[in-house]
Amino acid sequence: MSKILLQVEDLCTSFFTRAGEFKAVDGISFYVHEGETFGLVGESACGKTVTGLSILRLLPEPAGRIVGGKIILDGTNLMELSKKEMRAYRGKMISMILQDPMTSLNPVYTVGNQIGESVRLHQGLRDDKVEDEVISALRLLRIPAPEMRIRDYPFQMSGGMRQRVVGSIAMSCRPRLLIADEPTTALDATIQAQYIALFKDIQKQTDVAIIFITHDFGVVANICQRVAVMYAGKIVETAATSTIFKAPKHPYTSALIHSVPRLDRKDDRLYSIEGQPPSLLDLPPGCRFAPRCPDVQEICHKQQPPIVEISDGHSVSCWKVK
């Protein structure tokens, strides 16, 4: 197995509001290998986006703060970097793709200008060199006729093309780690398939590690080698993708997988998890899934389950699993 690039240990991120402390991310640990695609899956407000923002240290301060844990990227603990050092890391070492290609590009600048900005910032190149870099970044994302495209404005492009431009900006400085937050959710099915195939390709070329944040199990299956499933601020299960799909051990993981309708068979009724995720202001004292869990035991309501590694690379946080 290749080297570990990113190690997140016991990360806790909270939002402080008038209503109290939201524990958006509450003690999660995971690692990402070099050149690997690691999926963070969960429903809205489970903390997956906040995890991504925490790694980049781009939380909306002062409300959001990392309250504990370590984020070690290639031997450096990002938590110990100054703001200035962190800025240099962003873009160069880590970058991010956001969900909505409509809003993540600035409508008043050309595409070339926006990619160039990040190149100039991090590589300190002269203007004539910048354009070469921009074109090569566009080419990496297989945008047709990049020499022409750099003079286009975002509104002149389709949603799929725009999302490729966003990808070019993120990849323009050849980062080691890319955090992609629902990059395909806004795209149509056939365009989504194109985009995912493209990213697999880019990964082969550049060996970038990707943290793929999504709620869509179909996409996860397609692109990720390993997956962590999050629920209410905690990781409940981590495993290789096919293990997650074929032998999920946590009741939440298996419920989620079974509640998605299948394209390859006819279901008459879907398995559904009753109730809703708990409020982050008022979390249950024991396992967070206990109130909705079909296999709940007494201990689940009292104590949080430990994370147990049941086989190599497959860890579960559930009392049922010993």
């Binding site: 365009i191 299956a221 397609n222 799909f245 074929k246």
Partner: peptide
């Protein structure tokens, strides 16, 4: 067929077995 293929759940090992998705070129 392309739509169904794009939406079908494929695991990494399915790909190793040679299952390929139909990837349409271009956009509508």
């Amino acid at each position: 067929r392309a739509l169904i293929s794009a939406s079908m759940l494929t695991l990494p090992e399915d790909e190793d077995k040679g299952v390929e998705k139909i990837i349409l070129s271009g956009e509508m």
